[in-house]
Computed example of a mutant assay.
Amino acid sequence: MGQDWVKPLELADRGVRLVPLGLQHEEGLKAAAADGELWNIRVTSVPEPENTRRYIQDALRMFDEGKRVAFAVLDAATGQVIGSSSYHDILPEVKRLEIGYTWYAKSRQRTALNTTCKLLLMQHAFETLGAKVVGWRTDNYNYASQRAIERLGAKKDGVIRGHAMRRDGTIRDTVMYSLAAGEWPEVKAHLLHQLERWGSLRETQPTRSGA
């Protein structure tokens, strides 16, 4: 099962902490999602305030099923919840997992946050778990997510048509990306170079460009 390969843990660097998501993060997730009313974005799955507890419970159920390990993303200096991300679609038999269910409070977007989180998750996947492939998937209309994934160095694998239901009841096409273990060293060097330019989360301010 997936939880035998990918276990809950804490990852931290550059002013960011990723900790196992639990019901104790409910109010923090509500506040983070309210920063920008992110549940109104059609192409994401950010929970509405009244559905936040169920969102966490679903993540915990998926962990029990070996399908997902969810994290709360925290500002290391304050402990404030500023988003969430997960490992999911965990396939230990082929050493493949995906990174997704990712969202951040609007005021923290377009900073070094996403790059820092993804670096932590990819580094653990490739260097500790021995993953052969890390994947991503996103809505075909979520262009911001596609650009962010591509900036990480992932390769576009293709589009699965009529793949999943959106929150508004429409059916989406899903854009699939992946990064192979052999590509990781160059991608890691590039991401570290970017972060050296940006500094830590506490040193960066939102801008009009960047992941």
Rank of each mutant, 00 (worst) to 15 (best):
G2L: 09
W5E: 06
V6M: 14
V6E: 05
E10H: 09
L11A: 08
A12H: 03
A12N: 02
R17C: 10
L18V: 12
V19E: 13
Q24F: 08
H25F: 03
E26M: 12
K30C: 14
G36N: 07
E37Q: 15
E37C: 12
L38W: 05
W39Q: 11
N40E: 15
I41R: 15
I41L: 15
V43Y: 15
V43H: 15
T44R: 08
T44Y: 09
V46G: 11
P47M: 11
E48Q: 13
P49C: 04
N51Q: 12
N51L: 03
T52D: 07
R54M: 14
I56H: 08
Q57F: 03
Q57E: 15
D58E: 13
D58Y: 03
L60K: 00
R61S: 13
R61K: 13
E65K: 10
E65C: 03
G66I: 09
G66R: 04
G66K: 04
K67H: 11
R68T: 03
R68E: 13
V69N: 13
V69G: 12
F71N: 04
A72M: 05
A76P: 08
A76R: 09
A77R: 14
I82R: 01
S84L: 01
Y87S: 02
H88L: 13
H88G: 04
D89T: 12
I90N: 09
I90E: 07
L91F: 11
E93K: 09
E93Y: 04
E93R: 12
W103C: 05
W103N: 06
K106H: 12
S107M: 01
R110E: 01
T111S: 07
N114E: 08
N114G: 04
T116E: 02
T116K: 00
L119S: 02
L120P: 02
M122D: 02
H124Q: 09
E127G: 03
T128F: 06
L129G: 12
L129C: 11
A131T: 02
V133S: 12
G135M: 12
R137Q: 15
N140Y: 14
N142Q: 03
N142R: 02
S145P: 07
I149A: 02
R151G: 04
L152W: 10
L152P: 11
L152K: 14
G153I: 04
I160R: 15
I160K: 14
H163K: 08
A164C: 08
R167T: 06
T170I: 05
R172T: 02
T174H: 03
T174S: 14
M176A: 09
A181S: 10
W184M: 07
W184R: 00
P185A: 04
P185H: 02
E186G: 12
A189E: 03
H190E: 10
L191R: 00
H193I: 01
S200Y: 01
L201V: 06
L201H: 00
P206W: 10
P206Y: 10
T207A: 14
R208D: 13
S209G: 05
G210E: 10
